[in-house]
Protein backbone atom coordinates (compact mmCIF):
# COMPACT_ATOMS: atom_id res chain seq x y z
CA UNK A 1 0.00 0.00 0.00
CA UNK A 2 1.27 3.42 -0.94
CA UNK A 3 1.38 6.60 1.10
CA UNK A 4 -2.08 7.28 2.43
CA UNK A 5 -1.75 11.07 2.23
CA UNK A 6 -1.91 10.94 -1.56
CA UNK A 7 -4.95 8.72 -1.24
CA UNK A 8 -6.81 11.22 0.92
CA UNK A 9 -5.82 13.97 -1.50
CA UNK A 10 -7.33 12.07 -4.42
CA UNK A 11 -10.46 11.43 -2.40
CA UNK A 12 -10.80 15.02 -1.18
CA UNK A 13 -12.68 16.68 -4.09
CA UNK A 14 -15.43 14.04 -4.10
CA UNK A 15 -15.72 14.04 -0.34
CA UNK A 16 -15.93 17.83 -0.17
CA UNK A 17 -18.75 17.95 -2.74
CA UNK A 18 -20.64 15.10 -1.10
CA UNK A 19 -20.17 16.70 2.30
CA UNK A 20 -21.38 20.12 1.19
CA UNK A 21 -24.45 19.06 -0.79
CA UNK A 22 -25.17 15.74 0.90
CA UNK A 23 -24.40 16.13 4.60
CA UNK A 24 -24.32 19.83 5.49
CA UNK A 25 -28.01 20.24 4.54
CA UNK A 26 -28.92 17.55 7.03
CA UNK A 27 -26.81 19.00 9.80
CA UNK A 28 -28.64 22.24 9.10
CA UNK A 29 -32.11 20.65 9.20
CA UNK A 30 -31.17 18.74 12.32
CA UNK A 31 -30.71 22.18 13.84
CA UNK A 32 -33.79 23.74 12.23
CA UNK A 33 -35.94 20.75 13.24
CA UNK A 34 -35.80 21.86 16.87
CA UNK A 35 -37.15 25.32 16.07
CA UNK A 36 -40.44 26.85 15.19
CA UNK A 37 -39.70 28.72 12.00
CA UNK A 38 -42.34 29.81 9.54
CA UNK A 39 -41.58 32.60 7.09
CA UNK A 40 -45.24 33.49 6.67
CA UNK A 41 -46.35 33.38 10.27
CA UNK A 42 -46.72 36.41 12.55
CA UNK A 43 -43.20 36.08 13.92
CA UNK A 44 -40.68 35.19 11.25
CA UNK A 45 -37.96 34.51 13.78
CA UNK A 46 -36.74 31.06 14.73
CA UNK A 47 -37.92 30.16 18.20
CA UNK A 48 -36.64 27.11 20.01
CA UNK A 49 -39.38 24.62 20.77
CA UNK A 50 -37.50 21.43 21.67
CA UNK A 51 -38.97 18.25 20.25
CA UNK A 52 -42.37 19.79 19.56
CA UNK A 53 -42.00 19.31 15.81
CA UNK A 54 -41.36 15.62 16.31
CA UNK A 55 -44.16 15.33 18.85
CA UNK A 56 -46.51 16.84 16.29
CA UNK A 57 -45.08 14.55 13.61
CA UNK A 58 -45.75 11.20 15.30
CA UNK A 59 -49.40 12.20 15.75
CA UNK A 60 -49.85 13.77 12.31
CA UNK A 61 -52.46 11.60 10.52
CA UNK A 62 -51.44 12.89 7.07
CA UNK A 63 -47.80 11.97 7.63
CA UNK A 64 -48.58 8.54 9.06
CA UNK A 65 -51.06 7.89 6.27
CA UNK A 66 -48.45 8.85 3.67
CA UNK A 67 -45.96 6.43 5.24
CA UNK A 68 -48.58 3.69 5.25
CA UNK A 69 -49.36 4.29 1.55
CA UNK A 70 -45.64 4.19 0.74
CA UNK A 71 -45.16 0.91 2.58
CA UNK A 72 -48.20 -0.72 0.98
CA UNK A 73 -47.16 0.48 -2.46
CA UNK A 74 -43.61 -0.79 -2.02
CA UNK A 75 -44.76 -4.13 -0.66
CA UNK A 76 -47.20 -4.97 -3.45
CA UNK A 77 -44.95 -3.67 -6.21
CA UNK A 78 -41.77 -5.38 -5.02
CA UNK A 79 -43.37 -8.75 -4.31
CA UNK A 80 -45.00 -8.85 -7.74
CA UNK A 81 -41.80 -7.77 -9.44
CA UNK A 82 -39.74 -10.46 -7.73
CA UNK A 83 -42.18 -13.21 -8.69
CA UNK A 84 -42.70 -12.06 -12.29
CA UNK A 85 -39.02 -11.23 -12.75
CA UNK A 86 -37.83 -14.60 -11.47
CA UNK A 87 -40.30 -16.39 -13.72
CA UNK A 88 -39.26 -14.41 -16.81
CA UNK A 89 -35.57 -14.90 -16.03
CA UNK A 90 -36.11 -18.67 -15.88
CA UNK A 91 -37.65 -18.51 -19.34
CA UNK A 92 -34.68 -16.52 -20.68
CA UNK A 93 -32.12 -18.92 -19.28
CA UNK A 94 -32.24 -21.15 -22.33
CA UNK A 95 -31.07 -20.10 -25.77
CA UNK A 96 -33.75 -19.64 -28.39
CA UNK A 97 -33.90 -17.62 -31.58
CA UNK A 98 -34.88 -14.01 -30.92
CA UNK A 99 -33.80 -14.07 -27.29
CA UNK A 100 -31.63 -10.97 -27.53
CA UNK A 101 -34.42 -9.10 -29.32
CA UNK A 102 -36.89 -9.86 -26.51
CA UNK A 103 -34.31 -8.91 -23.93
CA UNK A 104 -33.52 -5.59 -25.57
CA UNK A 105 -37.18 -4.60 -25.80
CA UNK A 106 -37.65 -5.67 -22.19
CA UNK A 107 -34.92 -3.20 -21.12
CA UNK A 108 -36.66 -0.17 -22.61
CA UNK A 109 -38.74 0.94 -19.56
CA UNK A 110 -35.68 0.97 -17.30
CA UNK A 111 -34.06 4.02 -18.81
CA UNK A 112 -37.13 6.13 -19.51
CA UNK A 113 -37.42 9.18 -17.27
CA UNK A 114 -39.83 8.40 -14.39
CA UNK A 115 -41.79 11.52 -15.16
CA UNK A 116 -42.27 10.30 -18.75
CA UNK A 117 -43.43 6.93 -17.39
CA UNK A 118 -46.03 8.82 -15.42
CA UNK A 119 -47.06 10.64 -18.59
CA UNK A 120 -47.30 7.39 -20.55
CA UNK A 121 -49.55 5.76 -17.97
CA UNK A 122 -51.62 8.86 -17.60
CA UNK A 123 -52.32 8.81 -21.31
CA UNK A 124 -53.29 5.14 -21.00
CA UNK A 125 -55.64 5.52 -18.07
CA UNK A 126 -57.12 8.98 -18.45
CA UNK A 127 -60.91 8.82 -18.49
CA UNK A 128 -62.16 10.00 -21.85
CA UNK A 129 -59.64 8.83 -24.39
CA UNK A 130 -57.38 6.39 -22.53
CA UNK A 131 -57.63 2.91 -24.01
CA UNK A 132 -57.68 1.03 -20.68
CA UNK A 133 -60.90 2.55 -19.29
CA UNK A 134 -62.41 2.48 -22.77
CA UNK A 135 -61.71 -1.21 -23.36
CA UNK A 136 -62.71 -2.25 -19.85
CA UNK A 137 -65.98 -0.47 -20.33
CA UNK A 138 -66.52 -1.89 -23.78
CA UNK A 139 -65.58 -5.51 -23.10
CA UNK A 140 -66.50 -6.09 -19.47
CA UNK A 141 -68.81 -3.17 -18.78
CA UNK A 142 -66.47 -2.23 -15.95
CA UNK A 143 -66.00 1.34 -14.90
CA UNK A 144 -62.33 2.19 -14.45
CA UNK A 145 -61.64 5.73 -13.33
CA UNK A 146 -58.46 6.54 -11.42
CA UNK A 147 -59.74 10.08 -10.97
CA UNK A 148 -62.33 9.14 -8.35
CA UNK A 149 -61.77 5.53 -7.29
CA UNK A 150 -59.08 5.19 -4.63
CA UNK A 151 -58.56 1.43 -4.98
CA UNK A 152 -58.22 1.65 -8.73
CA UNK A 153 -55.78 4.54 -8.48
CA UNK A 154 -53.65 2.56 -6.06
CA UNK A 155 -53.81 -0.45 -8.35
CA UNK A 156 -52.75 1.75 -11.25
CA UNK A 157 -49.61 3.02 -9.52
CA UNK A 158 -48.63 -0.52 -8.50
CA UNK A 159 -49.10 -1.80 -12.06
CA UNK A 160 -47.13 1.14 -13.41
CA UNK A 161 -44.26 0.36 -11.05
CA UNK A 162 -44.36 -3.30 -12.04
CA UNK A 163 -44.19 -2.30 -15.69
CA UNK A 164 -41.30 0.05 -14.95
CA UNK A 165 -39.08 -2.11 -12.76
CA UNK A 166 -39.76 -5.77 -13.54
CA UNK A 167 -37.10 -5.65 -16.31
CA UNK A 168 -34.51 -4.76 -13.69
CA UNK A 169 -35.43 -7.81 -11.61
CA UNK A 170 -35.52 -10.05 -14.69
CA UNK A 171 -32.12 -8.98 -15.97
CA UNK A 172 -30.46 -9.18 -12.56
CA UNK A 173 -31.94 -12.58 -11.82
CA UNK A 174 -30.92 -13.76 -15.27
CA UNK A 175 -27.34 -12.63 -14.68
CA UNK A 176 -27.34 -14.37 -11.30
CA UNK A 177 -28.91 -17.56 -12.64
CA UNK A 178 -26.50 -17.86 -15.56
CA UNK A 179 -23.55 -17.51 -13.17
CA UNK A 180 -24.70 -20.45 -11.03
CA UNK A 181 -22.64 -23.65 -11.21
CA UNK A 182 -24.55 -26.50 -12.87
CA UNK A 183 -23.06 -29.43 -10.88
CA UNK A 184 -25.32 -29.36 -7.79
CA UNK A 185 -28.40 -29.24 -10.00
CA UNK A 186 -27.21 -32.11 -12.16
CA UNK A 187 -26.26 -34.18 -9.13
CA UNK A 188 -29.74 -33.64 -7.70
CA UNK A 189 -31.33 -34.63 -10.99
CA UNK A 190 -29.34 -37.87 -10.96
CA UNK A 191 -30.57 -38.48 -7.42
CA UNK A 192 -34.13 -38.13 -8.67
CA UNK A 193 -35.17 -34.75 -7.30
CA UNK A 194 -38.15 -33.13 -9.00
CA UNK A 195 -37.98 -29.63 -10.40
CA UNK A 196 -39.72 -28.04 -7.39
CA UNK A 197 -37.21 -29.66 -5.00
CA UNK A 198 -34.32 -28.50 -7.17
CA UNK A 199 -35.71 -24.98 -7.18
CA UNK A 200 -36.43 -24.95 -3.45
CA UNK A 201 -33.30 -26.61 -2.10
CA UNK A 202 -30.61 -25.78 -4.67
CA UNK A 203 -31.41 -22.80 -6.90
CA UNK A 204 -32.99 -20.63 -4.24
CA UNK A 205 -30.19 -20.95 -1.63
CA UNK A 206 -27.60 -20.33 -4.35
CA UNK A 207 -29.51 -17.29 -5.55
CA UNK A 208 -30.04 -15.89 -2.07
CA UNK A 209 -27.39 -13.13 -2.24
CA UNK A 210 -28.69 -11.88 -5.59
CA UNK A 211 -32.32 -12.02 -4.45
CA UNK A 212 -31.49 -10.11 -1.27
CA UNK A 213 -29.56 -7.43 -3.16
CA UNK A 214 -32.35 -6.98 -5.68
CA UNK A 215 -34.93 -6.95 -2.90
CA UNK A 216 -33.20 -4.21 -0.91
CA UNK A 217 -32.46 -2.09 -3.98
CA UNK A 218 -36.10 -2.35 -5.02
CA UNK A 219 -37.35 -1.56 -1.52
CA UNK A 220 -35.21 1.57 -1.37
CA UNK A 221 -36.35 2.59 -4.85
CA UNK A 222 -39.95 1.98 -3.93
CA UNK A 223 -39.65 4.17 -0.85
CA UNK A 224 -38.26 7.04 -2.89
CA UNK A 225 -40.69 6.89 -5.84
CA UNK A 226 -42.25 10.28 -6.46
CA UNK A 227 -42.12 11.40 -10.07
CA UNK A 228 -44.26 8.73 -11.75
CA UNK A 229 -46.99 8.72 -9.12
CA UNK A 230 -47.09 12.49 -8.96
CA UNK A 231 -47.58 12.61 -12.72
CA UNK A 232 -50.03 9.72 -12.98
CA UNK A 233 -52.43 10.64 -10.20
CA UNK A 234 -51.76 14.37 -10.28
CA UNK A 235 -50.21 14.65 -6.84
CA UNK A 236 -51.48 11.60 -5.01
CA UNK A 237 -55.17 11.75 -5.73
CA UNK A 238 -57.97 10.92 -5.38
CA UNK A 239 -57.84 12.30 -1.86
CA UNK A 240 -54.71 10.95 -0.26
CA UNK A 241 -55.04 7.41 -1.59
CA UNK A 242 -51.81 7.43 -3.60
CA UNK A 243 -49.95 10.15 -1.72
CA UNK A 244 -46.63 8.64 -0.80
CA UNK A 245 -44.31 10.27 1.70
CA UNK A 246 -42.27 11.87 -1.09
CA UNK A 247 -45.35 13.41 -2.70
CA UNK A 248 -46.57 14.55 0.70
CA UNK A 249 -43.37 16.49 1.29
CA UNK A 250 -43.26 17.81 -2.27
CA UNK A 251 -46.90 18.85 -2.65
CA UNK A 252 -48.06 19.66 0.86
CA UNK A 253 -45.25 20.34 3.30
CA UNK A 254 -42.79 22.11 1.04
CA UNK A 255 -45.19 24.80 -0.27
CA UNK A 256 -46.34 25.60 3.29
CA UNK A 257 -42.98 27.17 4.24
CA UNK A 258 -43.29 25.75 7.73
CA UNK A 259 -39.56 25.14 7.75
CA UNK A 260 -39.16 23.72 11.24
CA UNK A 261 -41.86 21.12 10.77
CA UNK A 262 -40.74 20.30 7.22
CA UNK A 263 -37.17 19.82 8.42
CA UNK A 264 -38.29 17.37 11.08
CA UNK A 265 -40.26 15.43 8.50
CA UNK A 266 -37.39 15.34 5.99
CA UNK A 267 -35.07 14.09 8.67
CA UNK A 268 -37.46 11.38 9.81
CA UNK A 269 -37.94 10.21 6.22
CA UNK A 270 -34.20 10.04 5.81
CA UNK A 271 -33.94 8.12 9.07
CA UNK A 272 -36.34 5.47 7.82
CA UNK A 273 -34.41 5.01 4.59
CA UNK A 274 -31.02 4.93 6.28
CA UNK A 275 -32.20 1.99 8.36
CA UNK A 276 -33.29 0.20 5.17
CA UNK A 277 -30.03 1.18 3.49
CA UNK A 278 -28.03 -0.52 6.20
CA UNK A 279 -29.44 -3.89 5.11
CA UNK A 280 -28.57 -3.13 1.49
CA UNK A 281 -25.04 -2.25 2.53
CA UNK A 282 -24.63 -5.48 4.46
CA UNK A 283 -25.90 -7.52 1.52
CA UNK A 284 -23.64 -5.67 -0.93
CA UNK A 285 -20.39 -6.04 0.98
CA UNK A 286 -18.08 -8.90 1.78
CA UNK A 287 -17.23 -9.28 5.46
CA UNK A 288 -13.53 -9.22 6.24
CA UNK A 289 -12.52 -10.17 9.74
CA UNK A 290 -9.68 -8.36 11.38
Amino acid sequence: MRRTRTGWLLLAPSMIILFVVGIVPFIYVLYVGFFDWNLFSASREMTFNGVNNYRQLVFDPLFLDAIWVTIRFTFFAVVSQLIIGFFLAQLLLRDFPGKSFFRTIHTVPLMIAPIAIGAIWRLLTIPGFGPIPYLLDRWFDFEFNIGNNATQAFLAIVIMDIWHWTPFVTLTMLAGLSALPAEPREAAQVDGANSWQIFRFITLPQMQPVVLTVLFIRIMDGLRTVDEINMLTNGGGPGTSTRTIGIHIFRVVFPQTDYGYGSAMSLLTLYLTIVACWFLFVSLTAVRKR
Binding site: L180, L284, A286, V287, R290
Partner: peptide, 13 residues
Protein backbone atom coordinates in the same frame (compact mmCIF):
# COMPACT_ATOMS: atom_id res chain seq x y z
CA UNK B 1 -20.54 -17.34 -7.33
CA UNK B 2 -23.69 -15.50 -8.15
CA UNK B 3 -22.64 -12.11 -6.79
CA UNK B 4 -19.56 -9.89 -6.67
CA UNK B 5 -18.79 -7.77 -3.67
CA UNK B 6 -17.04 -4.62 -4.83
CA UNK B 7 -16.61 -3.43 -1.26
CA UNK B 8 -15.29 -5.09 1.88
CA UNK B 9 -16.75 -4.52 5.28
CA UNK B 10 -14.00 -4.76 7.89
CA UNK B 11 -15.17 -6.10 11.26
CA UNK B 12 -13.67 -7.13 14.59
CA UNK B 13 -14.27 -10.74 15.51
Amino acid sequence: DSIHHPVEHEVED
